[in-house]
Design a protein around this nucleic acid. Structure first.
Lengths: 205, 205
DNA sequence: GAATTAACCGACCTTTTGGTCTGTTTAAAG
DNA sequence: CTTTAAACAGACCAAAAGGTCGGTTAATTC
């Protein structure tokens, strides 16, 4: 195989397996050896391509996690139809992947934020950056909805965004252990209830 | 000092310091030596009173965490006035302690659930037990509200409970790193908005 | 086809960790 | 006052962790 290609292939394999194990067992509970064992690779290969375990993880964030978050939570709500319907559908899909908690790393971002919060400022900087983009996207979506007449123009877009993010991160935690399917259903049902309360009221006219 | 008293005093000191460090740095990032150093005690003292690090933590859950959760999230909503007002005030107070993230371990439960989810089934059993009690308390509070005529009788009590728990756990995560005060304000504001949507509608009469 | 270098191997090192064990101090009992 | 056992001290151990380093294989260059 060509060298430059082989390099990319190996790094890719490492990152994908690394993310899978980090997501499953947590960063601190996954050793470099665990990952290498899974890949049938050696220490030499790992430290040839990466400076440290932390560097490895940061690159996973930049290469994989950012894209996954984009495709799962950012892009789906950037459409031009009814904002609240877009968000509802987006959450519905994202949570569905979390129900079958296997290969599709549901919402890895949430797990890592919890794990590194107040423990590793450097990594948190990267994770917060993703959060920030998510928040901005939500806020502008809400404002678009207000402009388009779907959402009551009195609602606080930033408030709604924070509330949505909170509930999403929380339900992911609750779904991880107990009856994920039932909890997802109840959650989505109440989300729609909440959305009704910020839609334009006919009585306003 | 009398022996039986000294025993209790030492165990208490250990548990309080242990909880503080576990909460601050996480369970896996806090070594037994870290705790002992803080206490100026020795390994001998630790393993004389506790079988293992895990046993130590389980006892902290049972002795401290359960009570803290009770006094912070359970008892405040068991009153007999308007349910939604009780929950609002309860969340308000609980989140306020999280704003000054110092000595008062805001909502330690949430952190530990995130840390042990899918990693340590034994400890999760204990934490889930607390979650379950919280959920039951919320559900019966909602139902009481429906019965008392404060809450629309069409709402799904279990759904509301899950939604409340989700949003609370999520906002605690979001508050841990960035602008906790502003986020708390926005969160509470939207919580009230949501509550309005499940109150009895005058149009129903 | 020899030289060079990227890609990888695996033994080894150091630090940290949870846990053990022997010994010492101190409070209660006889 | 002696004995006894609780309460604690601290040296020690084995395993695991992140990381280093000299050596080997395979692809590229000249």
């Amino acid at each position: 195989m060509q060298k430059s290609i082989k390099r990319r292939a190996t790094i890719n394999r490492m990152q994908i397996t690394g993310l899978a194990l980090f997501y499953k067992n947590g960063y601190y509970n996954t050793s470099v050896d665990d990952i290498l064992k899974e890949l049938s690779l050696s220490k030499g290969a790992f430290y040839y391509h990466f400076d440290s375990k932390e560097d490895f993880f940061v690159q996973i964030i930049e290469q994989l996690l950012v894209r996954k978050t984009y495709s799962m939570l950012i892009e789906p709500i950037e459409g031009h139809s009814n904002t609240l319907e877009l968000i509802t559908e987006c959450f519905e899909n994202a949570l569905e992947t979390a129900v079958h908690n296997e290969l599709d790393y549901g919402f890895a971002l949430s797990n890592f934020i919890n794990e590194f919060n107040g423990k590793n400022a450097d990594i948190m900087k990267h994770l917060n950056e993703i959060l920030r983009i998510w928040e901005v996207t939500l806020v502008s979506a809400i404002q678009r909805g207000k402009f388009n007449g779907h959402i009551d123009r009195h609602v606080d877009a930033e408030g709604v965004a924070v509330y949505l993010m909170s509930s999403y991160i929380g339900i992911r935690t609750l779904m991880a252990e107990n009856t994920p399917s039932a909890r997802k259903y109840r959650f989505m049902s109440q989300l729609r209830q909440y959305f009704k309360s910020i839609e334009v009221k006919e009585s306003s006219y």
